[in-house]
Design a binder for these strands. Sequence first.
RNA 1: GGUCGGAUGGCCGAGUGGCUAGGCAGAGGUCUGCAAAACCUUUUACACCGGUUCGAAUCCGGUUCCGACCUCCA
Length: 491
Amino acid sequence: MPSSLHLHNTLTHKSEKFEPLNPPFVGMYLCGPTVYGDPHLGHGRGALTMDILFRYLNHLDYQVRYVRNVTDVGHLLNDADEGEDKIGKKAKLENIEPMEVVQRYTNSYHDALKSLNIIPPSIEPRASGHIIEQIEMIQEIMNNGFAYEKNGSVYFDVIKYAETHDYGELSGRKIEDLIAGAGENRRSLEGQSEKKNSNDFALWKKASPEHIMKWNSPWSKGFPGWHIECSAMSEKYLGKEFDIHAGGMDLLFPHHESEIAQSKACNHTNPAKYWLHNNMITVNGQKMAKSLDNGILIKELFSGNHRLLDQAYSPMTLRFFLLQAHYRSTLDFSNEALKAAEKGFQRLMSGVKNLEGISPSPNSEININDWCEKLYAQLNDDLSTPQVIATLFEAVKWFNELNSNRLKISKEDLETLEKTFKLFVFEILGFVSEKNNHDQILDGIMSLVFDIRNSAKQNKDWDTADKIRNQLKDLGIEIMDGKDGSSFKID
RNA sequence: GGUCGGAUGGCCGAGUGGCUAGGCAGAGGUCUGCAAAACCUUUUACACCGGUUCGAAUCCGGUUCCGACCUCCA
């Protein structure tokens, strides 16, 4: 178990000790969403993975600049579309301004992440606000001989680049295989004629007349290619070389591979030291994706309004569900798993409550230091949140045993236990209690109801006691009588 | 066809050359006017076939199946 943070680097296929290029500063970049639709569960996973890393690095007293972009231009739907990007397409469909689409879905993305208690990044640049930087970078790549212009569009020359560089160092692909094509499955694309080779990718695309979003450039009125935006924005805010670049596994090729190629062709350096990739959420074993029409939107999960959902799930249930799996594993969606996560999260939160009632003893029967070290070691092990959660549940069990005096703990250890438990649950894993103001009012009302019912019970007036219980149950409030008084739960 | 990654008990999911993952569900118990909850205890496992080893679910070889990427994608 590592005593310092180790991260799995896709570039080297190994878990590596995290050593920032310029401590105590850390620069990290996450490929954010293309804002042409509401975010689904998968979008949440990438942002959440980086949220855990961001929180932990901050806890370790690094000074972190976290950049997460918003892609609001330039995504070609596919090459055959010849210059119509996703944002523009959606805008025409809905007959509104492209920037209105961008704003709407950026807001939607922010709302979803906020409900999941994901901390906003330090900088959230938009691709449309960095056209000049992208043009400059394209120009430099051309100056270095790794890009060519054709009919107002500019393409990255993969073959030329591969003569002196390793195009495929990240994804493990070999240039010969790429040139050979993808076998019989490879779709023959239209609009490929401008390219010298089908693997070349667009840095700048000339816009067709009906295209809405376009900018002036030395080559044509057009818009930037997809890969160049991340290269330009990460360089602008994090420098030519920074620490961590993350994104979904599905971006590994060609997006991240091409980012590396662009940075090397422009700046002669790999932009990031550590490349992190989170895996996909699956539905019945298949990737959740807009294109497969099996996506569950985050807001649908919260409302329960989706054909695959038995019920609504709370934001923290989703957060718990996601963190119970390692970020590099695929995670299969199911109602059963979500329900288990819901119960599990409630149990974890009940631990926080049970912690309050513990009274210390002169000596301890628990090795708190080992437990604390284990938590750090597990998090250090490539952010193994599932193991951290399991270790936190060890403590939840202790809380019960301590409360019933089956276990002893010293005052000093109790303080450490409480501090560390809350640190990991709230600060690092980022859970929040889902109680709100209405719950406080309800607590007051319910304590009144309990008073009345307890009098009835003392008078052995079971009719009244049961009437209160049954009628509240119809309203969705369940009363539970325990040794130390009554409690209630809302369905 | 190429590259990469999986296959763990009823479900979800960690981990690992010999020692309990954890959560949920199931079973038994404690508590209790009854009930529920809570708490305690507990059953079920490592795709298949070989090999290495004192010992493998964990390492090696092979097989089968599944997924991701190669086209926009978190």
